[in-house]
Computed example of a mutant assay.
Amino acid sequence: MSASAQTAHHDAHHGHGDPESHATFRGYMTGFVLSVILTAIPFWLVMADVIGDSRTTGLVIMAFAVVQVVVHMICFLHMNTKSEGGWNILALIFTLTLVVITLIGSLWVMYHLNTNMMPMSHHDMHSHIPAAPAR
Rank of each mutant, 00 (worst) to 15 (best):
H16W: 15
T24Y: 01
S121Y: 01
T95L: 12
V66H: 12
M117N: 13
T57Y: 01
S106C: 15
H13L: 12
I51V: 15
H112G: 02
N114K: 11
D49W: 04
L34H: 02
W87G: 12
I37H: 03
M79G: 00
G17H: 07
R26M: 08
L107F: 05
H128Q: 14
V71S: 03
Q68D: 11
H78L: 13
A40Q: 05
T115R: 09
L59M: 12
V33E: 04
L90G: 07
I104V: 13
H14Q: 04
C75H: 14
V109W: 08
D49E: 09
I101N: 09
I104D: 08
A48S: 11
T81Y: 11
A12N: 07
A134Y: 04
P19Y: 01
I129A: 09
L103R: 10
G58W: 01
A8T: 05
D49H: 14
T30E: 06
G52D: 07
R26F: 13
T7H: 03
E20R: 07
W44N: 10
F94V: 15
G15V: 02
S127H: 15
V36T: 04
R55S: 10
D124I: 12
H128T: 15
T7V: 10
A91T: 15
M125N: 10
N80V: 02
L90N: 07
G27I: 00
N114G: 15
M110T: 05
P119N: 10
S35R: 01
V66D: 14
L45F: 09
S4V: 15
V100M: 05
V36E: 02
L34Y: 04
L103G: 13
W87S: 13
E84Q: 08
G58P: 00
G85K: 03
T7S: 09
L38F: 14
T95A: 15
I41R: 00
V36Q: 06
G86I: 05
L77P: 02
H72D: 05
I74Q: 13
A65F: 07
L59P: 02
T102P: 01
N116K: 11
A40T: 09
L98T: 10
T56N: 08
P133K: 06
A8L: 14
F94K: 07
P42D: 04
E20A: 07
R55E: 06
Q6H: 11
S54K: 13
D124L: 08
I93R: 11
I101D: 07
P42W: 01
T39D: 06
H22Y: 05
F94H: 06
G86Q: 01
D53A: 02
W44M: 04
F94S: 12
F25N: 11
W87H: 09
L107Y: 01
T30H: 04
N80Q: 01
T81I: 15
A48W: 03
G27V: 00
M1A: 03
T97I: 15
G15S: 03
D11W: 02
G15D: 00
H9F: 06
S35G: 13
V33R: 09
S2K: 11
R135H: 14
S35F: 06
E20N: 07
H112A: 07
L77D: 13
D53L: 10
G105F: 09
E84P: 00
L77N: 06
S21R: 10
G17Y: 04
V71H: 01
L34A: 05
L77K: 08
V109S: 09
S2Q: 06
D53N: 14
